[in-house]
């Protein structure tokens, strides 16, 4: 794409966003919806500015992001390790696959009461729930990537007499890297969702909790400010992972 065309696209997408914000403002001003339920972008923005200048919103954001990342890293590490074991062994795949297929579709929210019973309404419980929820995309992607090595590469590793562990480490896992990264990207979104829900349930400090508080107190501007911050977190983390992906998978580009 030429620079001019790319500029035009950028201009277009900015225009659409501006149009949406403008119509939001118009609806808030003249739509007849009470301001306790719907603030205009102007009020949401000033709540955002006030929240960050007071330092409160930054603290809440930090708490939620920290929770999200801890749970996600935990899930990713466990998912890759477990996926590597399952994916590299035909026997393990046959034994474990049916169970995975039963557990995987169960909504994480169904696990929450179970985890709560063991850990109570605590930060640890939220962390565990995030880990349980965001492990699946990584786990399944790793199993697939590790078990779908090009047969010729299997022969190369046999011919070089690589040990089972070295084959996994040097061939099967690198072979799975594209799948793993895609799984981790989905997992991160799941982790953010579960961090917010977990905070709402446990009243642990964070954006989820503060949004709920704002809603209960009819502070609609604060509520929207929180939602905007969550959107930005999702956007930034996705962009960051995309650029990591681009670097790690640079061997695919000509």
């Amino acid at each position: 794409m030429s620079i001019a065309a790319r500029g035009l696209w950028l201009l277009g997408s900015i225009g659409v966003t501006a149009l949406l914000v403008l119509s939001w403002q118009l609806i808030a001003n003249y739509g007849g919806i009470p301001p306790v339920f719907l603030p205009g972008p102007d009020r949401a923005w000033s709540a955002l500015v006030a929240g960050f200048s007071g330092g409160e919103l930054a603290g809440l954001t930090g708490a939620t992001v920290e929770r999200m990342i801890y749970g996600w890293v935990l899930a990713s590490l466990a998912g890759i390790a477990l996926g590597a074991v399952i994916g590299s062994s035909q026997v393990a795949r046959e034994y474990v696959a049916p169970m995975l297929e039963i557990v995987r579709p169960v909504p994480v929210s169904a696990f929450m009461p179970v985890v709560m019973a063991f850990l109570g309404l605590t930060g640890t419980m939220v962390l565990v729930v995030i880990a349980i929820g965001s492990i699946w995309p990584v786990l399944l992607a790793t199993v697939h990537g590790v078990s779908s090595v090009e047969p010729r590469l299997v022969e190369v590793s046999q011919s070089l007499r690589l040990s089972r562990f070295k084959t996994l480490w040097k061939i099967a896992l690198p072979n799975a890297q594209a799948d793993i990264l895609a799984g981790m990207r989905i997992g991160l979104t799941v982790a953010l969702i579960l961090a917010v829900i977990g905070e709402m349930l446990t009243s642990e400090n964070g954006l989820g909790w503060s949004i709920l508080q704002a809603a209960r107190a009819y502070r609609s501007a604060d509520l929207f400010a929180g939602v905007i911050v969550l959107g930005v977190i999702g956007l930034v983390s996705n962009l960051a992972l995309q650029s990591i992906e681009r670097y790690v998978l640079r061997w695919k580009r000509r």
Partner: peptide, 23 residues
């Protein structure tokens, strides 16, 4: 009885026999 270190095998399909993620 199996691959030996002293014997090296070179495959026809070079694009499949190299690790694409390694230089």
């Amino acid at each position: 009885a199996g691959p030996a270190r002293e014997i090296s095998f070179m495959f026809q399909d070079y694009s499949k026999a190299l690790l694409p993620w390694r230089t």
